[in-house]
Lab assay of single mutants.
Amino acid sequence: QKEELKEKAKEAVKRGNKDKARELLKRAGISEEEAKKIIKKIE
């Protein structure tokens, strides 16, 4: 489940939808700070 949400978040970032990505990562139980780092890494 968590990995699936991370994959979806990756796709969202690639489409330029960072808010959606952050939302998905939060749903995966990832903190706001972690989510920001992950999104930065994907960009």
Rank of each mutant, 00 (worst) to 15 (best):
G29M: 02
E23G: 02
E43G: 06
I38A: 01
K10H: 08
K26D: 15
S31M: 05
K40E: 15
K2S: 10
E7M: 10
K6V: 15
K40S: 13
K8M: 14
E23Y: 00
K8P: 01
E3Q: 09
R15F: 05
A21H: 01
E32N: 08
S31E: 07
E4R: 12
E32F: 07
A9P: 01
L25H: 04
K10S: 06
L25T: 01
K36R: 12
G29F: 00
K37C: 13
N17M: 11
E43Y: 07
A35E: 00
K14E: 08
S31R: 04
K18A: 11
L25V: 03
E33K: 09
K41S: 12
A9K: 01
K37M: 10
E32Q: 07
G16S: 02
K10G: 06
I42D: 01
R15W: 03
Q1L: 14
E3S: 08
Q1I: 13
A12N: 04
R15E: 13
I30N: 02
D19T: 09
A28Y: 03
R15Y: 03
A35L: 08
K2D: 10
I42F: 13
A12I: 04
K18G: 06
A9R: 01
E11Y: 00
R22W: 12
G16V: 02
E33L: 07
E4F: 11
E11Q: 11
K40M: 12
N17Y: 08
I30L: 13
K14A: 10
D19E: 11
K36Y: 08
K26F: 05
A21T: 01
G16E: 02
S31L: 05
K10E: 10
K26S: 13
R15I: 09
I42G: 03
A9D: 02
E33R: 10
A12C: 10
A12Y: 06
E3T: 08
D19N: 08
I39H: 00
N17E: 15
Q1T: 14
K36V: 14
E7D: 08
K10R: 14
D19R: 09
Q1N: 13
K14G: 06
D19H: 07
E11C: 10
A9F: 05
K20L: 15
E34A: 07
K37E: 14
K18H: 12
G29A: 00
K6G: 06
A12P: 02
K40F: 09
E23C: 07
A35Q: 04
E7C: 13
A35C: 03
S31N: 08
K41D: 14
Q1D: 13
K26H: 09
A35R: 02
K8W: 07
L5T: 03
K36A: 14
I39L: 08
G29R: 00
I38R: 00
E3I: 07
E7N: 11
A12H: 08
E33F: 04
I30E: 05
I39A: 01
G16D: 04
V13L: 11
K26Q: 15
A35H: 01
D19A: 11
K2C: 14
E23R: 04
R15N: 14
E4Q: 10
K18D: 05
D19C: 11
K6R: 11
A28E: 02
A12D: 03
G16T: 02
K14L: 14
E7H: 08
A28K: 00
E43T: 06
A21M: 03
K14T: 07
K36G: 10
L25G: 09
D19K: 11
A28S: 04
K8H: 06
E4D: 12
L24Y: 06
E3K: 08
A21C: 11
K40T: 11
A28Q: 01
N17L: 12
R15T: 10
G16N: 04
R27P: 11
